[in-house]
Amino acid sequence: MKNFIWNMHAFFPQILGIFFVLSIGMISQNVMASDNDDDDEPTEDIVLRGDRTCTGCHDEGAESVLTIGKTKHGTVADERAPTCTSCHGKSIRHMDRPEKVPMPSRTFGKNSLNPVEDRNQTCLNCHQGDKQMHWAGSTHANRDVACTSCHQIHTAQDKVRDRITQSEVCFSCHKEQRAQINRPSRHPVREGKVICSDCHNSHGSAGPGMMTRDSINDTCYTCHMEKRGPFVRNHPPVQENCALCHNPHGTTAPNLLKVRSPFLCQECHEPNTHQGSPGTIDGSYRRNLLARGCLNCHTQIHGSNNPEDVRLEDLLQR
């Protein structure tokens, strides 16, 4: 099977070159098609079907509601695309007397007076399946998080769907994690290479902690599959929960460990011999604290597949 392993270094430029040229070709065709479309007579509706009722007033400025036209919701060729009233309600009183009823039937801003469930149901009417399947009953749903608390509907660049800016949105509530991503041992969250939604499905999941996979470990294995085993020699907490020892959001101890060795190891291991030593940076027991700590000897801390048993393999040393 190893003969089939792809050599990414060798094929990377060629593969990308091919799909790049293909994509440019298609884009060019599409640009020409769009230019031709511009010759069409403008309709009374500006963006969405039937929006003239609303855009007669709401056509102002750079922050215009019209920018929904840049989004998938504004793609009217898709017959499922909503109208203004699909989300905001018919708002008849608002249209008749806007000076007395300044708000439409349903609004989504921070000062909205519509119940969160009602606002969210508006989105769920179309987005109830797939990744939103487990929204009902999820922690965010139970804590009155509105879809629009995270998503911006009228803009082309929804911050929470962009790998670079997503964490800013999550950190508006999750302050502890905002601090943790600046710890010396961290995932590349700041660089947008590992982002919140790589591990968490904020819409709910069947796993704990809204993990994207069915368990914490299964989520970690998507990038760290070498830790999965099973091994000839297993280290029990490894298989149970990676988060027993690691804090994936960032730590000061190396390798995202919650506490550095030997203190972390001493939270489980019996002090029968050297395991119980206090920390010291000099003297005989510095080997338990310095460098890799206990892992200076017990190197195979996630498990060893060594079938021999002649050099302390059962102690995860080889």
């Binding site: 790049f20 994509s23 440019i24 298609m26 884009i27 599409n30 640009v31 098609a33 769009s34 479309d37 998938k72 793609t75 009217v76 060729a77 898709d78 082309a156």
Partner: peptide, 13 residues
């Protein structure tokens, strides 16, 4: 990002 308005076809790179 390009979109064909007639067909709702997007191309994104």
């Amino acid at each position: 990002t390009k979109r064909d308005e007639n067909t709702g076809t997007w191309l994104k790179l």
